[in-house]
């Protein structure tokens, strides 16, 4: 699914990421690396092999987009360091040529030597890239009418209700007039169904494709 915003071409991908074609840049939000291991460390037996799911999707994105740069829009990590971080570090080392940057989210608790180890540039707060503002949490008011924010944080899902009390929840992209909200990337992170304004477009991820709802 391709859309145009601020004259830029943006691809919404079913892997729960957004690809900015002109800049060859991939935007990913809310990976929550370490969440499954965090649960397991506390004694909650989430299947450990499910950790691979995130990396499988990341690798698909690398093969498909071949990006020059990746922005992680916050909550790259879920909590304290655990062995899932090492898996992520190994993955990072396979793609050292790609510039990676992070806008810190509320979950990210990075150690002091993070930048050296992971070779990922850290931004403490919102940054401007071309016509876009990248922010972890969606903003409610904009600095001017031309600002366009790309954010994440809320892991949006859309609830589609059918007959006979059937309902299904699907992760989605919310594309508004001045803001796009990305689905949470991380496996085992869930999401929140939320109210949208009528001007928002919602693209739900239905297995391997996107559908506007």
């Amino acid at each position: 699914m391709t859309i145009t915003i601020c004259d830029q071409t943006l691809q919404l991908l079913p892997q729960k990421a957004l690809f900015w074609v002109e800049e060859q840049t991939l935007l990913i939000s809310d990976l929550h690396i370490g969440k499954i291991a965090h649960f397991r460390k506390a004694g909650y037996a989430v299947p450990s092999n499910s950790i691979q799911q995130n990396f499988e999707r990341l690798n698909q994105l690398m093969a498909f987009c071949n990006p020059k740069r990746i922005y992680f829009i916050g909550d790259l990590f879920h909590s304290d360091i655990n062995h899932e971080w090492e898996l992520f570090l190994n993955w990072r080392k396979q793609f050292l040529a790609i510039d990676m940057q992070i806008i810190l989210g509320n979950h990210d608790r990075l150690p002091s030597n993070f930048n050296e180890d992971f070779k990922i540039t850290v931004h403490q707060t919102t940054i401007k890239v071309g016509p876009f503002t990248l922010a972890h949490q969606p903003v409610k008011s904009f600095s001017n009418v031309d600002e366009y924010v790309i954010s994440g944080h809320i892991h949006p899902v859309v609830k589609i209700t059918g007959k006979a009390n059937q309902a299904i929840k699907l992760p989605c992209f919310i594309i508004g007039k001045q803001q796009a909200i990305l689905p949470g990337f991380g496996y085992f992170t869930g999401g929140h169904a939320l109210k949208t304004t009528s001007t928002d477009k919602i693209f739900a991820i239905v297995e391997h494709e996107l559908k506007e709802v």
Partner: peptide
């Protein structure tokens, strides 16, 4: 071990 076997291979702790 948080899995179907008694062999531990990660930090699972209970």
């Amino acid at each position: 071990t948080g899995s179907s076997s008694l062999v531990a291979y990660d930090e699972f702790k209970k």
